Simulated assay, not measured.
Amino acid sequence: MKRIAALFLALGLVVAPAASAQGWMNQFSPGQARDSRNQGRTVPLSQIFNKLKQQYGGYQLSADLYDKGNGKSVYEIDWMTKDGRKMHFVVDAQTGAVLDRRGA
C-alpha cells in the first residue's frame, strides 16, 4: 500500500509542473512584446500608463502581455493609486481600452 502511495506522489510531482507550465504558455516573452509593439500590433504600455496616471494618479506595480487566442491580446496591469489603493486592470492591447477593473 505504501508503494502505491509513493508511486502516486512521485507521479504527481512529475505531472504538476507540466500542468502549471501550460498556464504560462500564453504570456508574451519580453522580446515578443517588444516585437508586437514595434510592428504596431499592440499599443505601447507608456500610453496606457499615461491614461491610468491621469485617471487614478499613482504608478504601475507590474504589467504583463498575454495572448488570448484568435489574434487577441491583453495587458494585465497592477497599479497603485495616489490614495494607496491597489488596482488590477485588464486592457485590450490593440486598442488600449480598459476591459476590466478591480480594486480595493
Rank of each mutant, 00 (worst) to 15 (best):
S36L: 09
F89Q: 03
S36E: 11
I77H: 12
S20E: 14
Q47Y: 05
G71M: 06
N38C: 04
A63T: 14
F89Y: 01
K2N: 11
G23I: 00
H88Y: 02
N38M: 11
F49N: 12
Q55C: 03
W79A: 03
A104C: 04
G23T: 02
L13V: 11
W79F: 04
D100M: 02
A104P: 08
Q22G: 08
N26K: 12
V91S: 09
F28C: 09
L13M: 12
G103R: 01
V98P: 00
V90Y: 06
D67T: 03
N70L: 10
R37T: 15
N38W: 01
L65R: 12
G31N: 11
V15L: 08
Y56N: 13
G96D: 04
R37V: 14
Q94R: 13
H88N: 13
L99F: 06
I48R: 02
Y66P: 00
L52N: 09
Q60F: 06
P30Y: 09
Q32W: 10
V91R: 08
G58A: 14
L52F: 00
S29E: 10
A104V: 06
I4T: 05
I4F: 15
G23Y: 14
H88P: 01
G23E: 11
R41V: 01
L65C: 10
K2L: 14
L9S: 13
A21N: 10
S46W: 06
W24R: 12
Y59F: 13
T95C: 05
M1V: 09
A63R: 08
D92G: 09
Q22I: 12
L45A: 05
M80D: 12
V90P: 01
L52R: 03
Y56P: 02
G103S: 09
Q54P: 05
K53D: 13
S46F: 11
P44N: 04
A16N: 07
F89S: 08
V43F: 06
G84H: 04
K82W: 10
I77L: 11
D64T: 15
K2T: 09
Q22D: 06
G69H: 07
S36Y: 09
D78V: 00
T81N: 08
K51R: 15
D100L: 06
S29M: 04
R37S: 10
F28H: 10
Y59G: 12
R102M: 08
D78S: 09
Q60P: 06
K53R: 14
T81A: 08
W79N: 02
Q39N: 13
Q22V: 14
E76G: 00
G84V: 10
K2R: 13
T95A: 01
V43C: 05
S73T: 07
V14Q: 00
G71T: 05
G69A: 02
I4P: 00
L7W: 07
W79T: 06
D100Y: 00
D67Y: 08
I4W: 14
D64E: 14
A97R: 14
A6I: 15
R37C: 05
K53Y: 12
M87P: 01
M1T: 13
K86C: 01
R34K: 15
K53Q: 13
G96P: 05
S46P: 01
P17D: 13
M1F: 08
S46N: 11
Q27D: 04
E76F: 09
G57I: 04
T95S: 13
E76I: 11
H88L: 05
K53P: 02
D64K: 15
T42H: 07
